[in-house]
Nucleic acid binder design. Structure first.
Length: 594
RNA sequence: GGUCCCGUAGCUCAACUGGAUAGAGCAACAGCCUUCUAAGCUGUAGGUUCCAGGUUCGAGUCCUGGCGGGAUCACCA
């Protein structure tokens, strides 16, 4: 139990005694007191006026008198309008710190107390390298997975790779024709880049053919439909579906190149999966499910043989589930995999990290499953996130404005290296240690920059200005951690913390720090509930600011009063622990030095 | 056009989900390196929270209607 929960409980009990009746916990609103007012926590008395039947000020005073008189926790109070500002005793704060220090993993709920949750994220196409949009997806998915885990849930992280379809055939065909048999290692490029390049090549050649056909008098649509390249690509897809051995071989080879490239990028980003699904294995799933429900009369078949779900009574359109040739569409696959995953893994919830352009898709998905009678249909959660926009607008591959994930990471690392060299703080360290620090600082900057923004909002990314290392940034938080670790080394208390006495005066900023320590579990819970890592990011920034403000003016090592010195060392150590834990939730490493 | 999301300082974002005088960081200006790491700290300046109504003790937050931006409404995935 953290500080806020404890106070809530105590005050709730007191209120029931004062008003001699049961009180809805929702009416007990306790918040941290605003900086401009005296006090630590504030009780909002407006919701209680119906019980008190007096003016707000009088009710607040009555409650304040009672609390201060009956409990040693509350030292004094003041009343401003309907706000009861309570100041807690020093003893309470010191006890709270004592409790917090004794819980090494504090903020993290006990394992096994929660639900089993599957989270799907990343989900790339194999014909394009990862770009900035994927980075937001990957970072969000990974951070949310860790936060859910910290909230006591068992989490299964999965990736669904789109490795089939006409777009893959385009890359394959282009490579076959113009690739001269050269592999990624022959050319010295990443596999995913190579395949992406041939996808682009296909498109270029395809356009030339379309132009040529238009010169011959065909319409745009006819030209698009009849160009030799597209016909060949379709033929290749047919062969793929017939498991033609030559096509399969090519497909497997080119995919393996892509996966190698993806894995490298995932590694650099520091993200991972418990299981990878491939659409080539799952794309037929769902057909049987649809046919079953067709028999039951839930779905209907049109004259041409296509199967539809009628959602008009839910104010949505009709949705096709099987084409007239009997094949599955995207929705059908997702229906099938959802049913299978809930059965195979016995999960309670399923989170999909997918961009907001698919809001409609997921709305329909859970609606259809609900109509099919699956109780867990309401437990599908679409973690919908906004676009990453550039100063020039949206990323468009045709205009070459796509920000490539690997290029971006490279840029970040060289920027971090330069900033680091300018400061000269890493002198004397080995090259590999220095490279390690540059790497985690660069990625810390990138990850924090993206995660601090509310997922559902579109966000702006300016690659030219790159990312700051000052202010509300990952490196600022990492830097504070490095300084705290340095302090611990110099004080020689790394492994055992000194005990501090329980009778010592606390400075306001010291109380504020302890308050923030106690708030951390709430932040983690809130981040889990709303699947918003931004809560954690912004909390860490607040904490670090408070720490820096205070410690800039107070030397710990030169402190002669041993009690004060021990207390401040403890507060520093604790701040370092929370930074480490909090950044871990975001998937960001913290260095010992930087 | 229907539906969904967004609109907060010059810029990028917060605001503990209905609480007090809307806060940070960039950028600008003025200070602080004999002081545990200056990737830091302290100040100054910057606001009709898109507009208009409504709900109530209280609205950036909730409801209605506008305006602006984005997404989506495929036998693509």
């Amino acid at each position: 139990m953290n500080i806020e929960q404890y106070l809530n409980q105590e005050i709730h009990k007191a209120l029931e005694r004062i008003f001699e009746q049961e009180i809805d916990p929702k009416q007990v609103q306790i918040q941290r007191t605003k900086a401009d007012f005296e006090g630590d926590f504030t009780l909002v008395v407006f919701p209680l006026l119906r019980l008190a039947k007096t003016k707000p000020e009088d009710a607040a005073k009555r409650i304040g008198d009672f609390l201060v008189e009956k409990s040693v926790v509350f030292d004094r109070f003041n009343v401003v309008k309907g706000f009861l500002n309570l100041t807690l005793s020093h003893g309470f704060w010191l006890n709270a710190l004592q409790d917090i220090v004794q819980q090494p993993d504090f903020g993290f709920a006990e394992k096994g107390s929660g639900k089993k949750i599957m989270i799907e994220y990343s989900s790339p196409n194999t014909n394009k390298p990862l770009h900035l949009g994927h980075i937001r997806n990957n970072l969000l998915g990974y951070a949310v997975a860790r936060i859910l885990e910290a909230c006591g849930n068992e989490v299964v992280k999965v990736n669904l790779v789109n490795d089939r379809g006409i777009h893959i055939c385009k890359s394959m065909l282009a490579w076959q024709r113009w690739g001269e048999g050269k592999t990624p290692s022959d050319l010295g490029v990443k596999g995913d880049k190579l395949v992406g390049d041939f996808y682009v090549r296909f498109d270029q050649e395809y356009k030339k053919q379309i132009e040529a056909l238009k010169q011959e008098g065909k319409t745009e649509d006819e030209a698009k439909d009849q160009a030799p390249l597209i016909l060949e690509a379709r033929e290749m897809l047919r062969k793929w579906e017939d498991r033609d051995s030559e096509v399969m071989k090519l497909w497997e080879q080119m995919n393996s190149w892509v996966y190698e490239g993806f894995d490298e990028t995932y590694n650099r980003l520091g993200i991972e999966f418990d299981k990878v699904y491939y659409e080539s294995d799952t794309y037929k799933k769902g057909k049987e499910l649809v046919l079953n429900h067709l028999e039951k009369g839930l779905l209907k078949k049109k004259e041409d043989g296509s199967v539809w779900a009628d959602l008009t009574e839910d104010k949505l359109d009709e949705k096709i589930l099987l084409r007239s040739d009997g094949t599955s569409v995207y929705m059908t696959q997702d229906l099938g995999t959802a049913v299978q995953r809930f059965a195979d893994y016995d999960i309670d919830q399923h989170v999909y990290v997918v961009g907001n352009e698919q809001d409609y898709h997921f709305k329909v998905l859970s609606l259809i499953l609900k109509k099919m009678g699956y109780e867990w249909a309401t437990q599908l959660f679409h973690l919908s996130y906004g676009m990453v926009e550039l100063p020039s607008g949206k990323m468009k591959s045709r205009e070459g404005t796509v920000v490539d994930a690997d290029d971006l990471i490279d840029t970040m690392i060289s920027t971090a290296a330069k900033a680091s060299a300018d400061s000269g703080k890493l002198e004397g360290m080995s090259q590999s240690d220095i490279a390690y620090v540059h790497n985690i600082v660069a990625l810390g900057a990138l990850k924090y920059f993206i995660l601090k923004v509310d997922p559902k909002k579109n966000m702006l990314f300016n690659p030219e200005e790159s990312i700051d290392f000052n202010g509300n940034t990952g490196p600022f938080i990492q830097y504070t951690h490095a300084r705290i670790r340095s302090l611990m080394r110099k004080a020689d208390v790394e492994n055992q913390l000194p005990q501090f006495p329980l009778s010592i005066d606390l400075q306001p900023k010291e109380q504020e720090l302890i308050q923030q320590f106690g708030h951390f579990p709430n932040v983690v819970a809130e981040a889990g509930k709303s699947m918003n890592p931004g809560f954690v990011a912004n909390y860490l920034f607040d904490l670090v600011k408070t720490f820096n403000q205070f410690y800039h003016d107070h030397s710990v090592l030169n402190e002669t009063d041993e009690d004060v010195r021990n207390l401040r060392l403890s507060l520093s150590w604790q701040t370092g622990q929370i930074i480490k834990n909090g950044m871990w939730l975001l998937g960001i490493d913290v260095p010992e030095r930087m």
